[in-house]
Design a protein around this nucleic acid. Structure first.
Lengths: 114, 114
DNA sequence: TTATCTGGTATACTCTATGATACTGGTTAC
DNA sequence: GTAACCAGTATCATAGAGTATACCAGATAA
């Protein structure tokens, strides 16, 4: 209730930063130890190469990941999470919790069908 | 790392449920005590009547809010949050926290500009 | 009387996020 | 030799989320 405007602004900033449907799944994948491009791609069924590529670029620009190229043969590329990236941990955990609960509730056939 | 697939599914369920850019702001407004249509509308600068109307309809269908009409003159409509609606509390709070922290960090001129 | 509040609906438009598909150049395995 | 891996890029198409604007009927205030 108090300082609704400021809360709203903070909330909207976060929503804006998160943006589309892939940002959080990608952050989660990387924070869960997936480092290589194809590895991340495989760990998120449904994402296309194009979207992952776009996400990773933006995330690098926003300092959410670092991209390291090991110029051996074959070239190896590694994406690693920054502290900034990990700062989404609690949000993601809460969302996972909610999603699990939601699924349970739906399966029990209640809650969103009263 | 463990059961990444299940976590991902839960996360994506939540993201899907949240949907667009207005769902969480509207939930927040209603949970913060705004009950009337125009009141909610005013409390979220930038939202249009059309989007708010759409959101509220979907939210009613999803059992996130109840819509009560008091048929006095003038007719009075009240939107109230359900428990389901309030279950987003922690997610929203975490997002507000993140947004505030983000703003601080940006203002200090660091973090996302290394 | 005119303006302003209420709770919305209707129509038209924009735009961008996402999806689908194909391709590249190099490496390694069969 | 060809198939499959790597890390992507390029091009095109499209749904639908979001915006803009105007409008309705009824009540209230100036």
């Amino acid at each position: 209730m108090r300082n609704h405007a400021e809360e709203l602004r903070a909330l909207q900033d976060t929503l804006y930063f998160i943006g589309g449907k892939w940002r959080l799944p990608v952050i989660n994948a990387i924070c869960n130890g997936h480092r290589r491009f194809r590895e991340i791609e495989r760990s998120i069924p449904g994402i296309t190469t194009r979207m992952l590529s776009k996400e990773l670029k933006e995330m690098e620009m926003n300092n959410l990941v670092t991209r390291t190229v090991y110029a051996d043969t074959p070239v190896l590329v590694e994406y690693a999470p920054t502290a900034y990236c990990r700062s989404f941990g609690t949000i993601i955990q809460e969302m996972i919790r909610w999603g699990r609960q939601h699924r349970k509730t739906i399966l029990k056939g209640r809650a969103d069908k009263p």
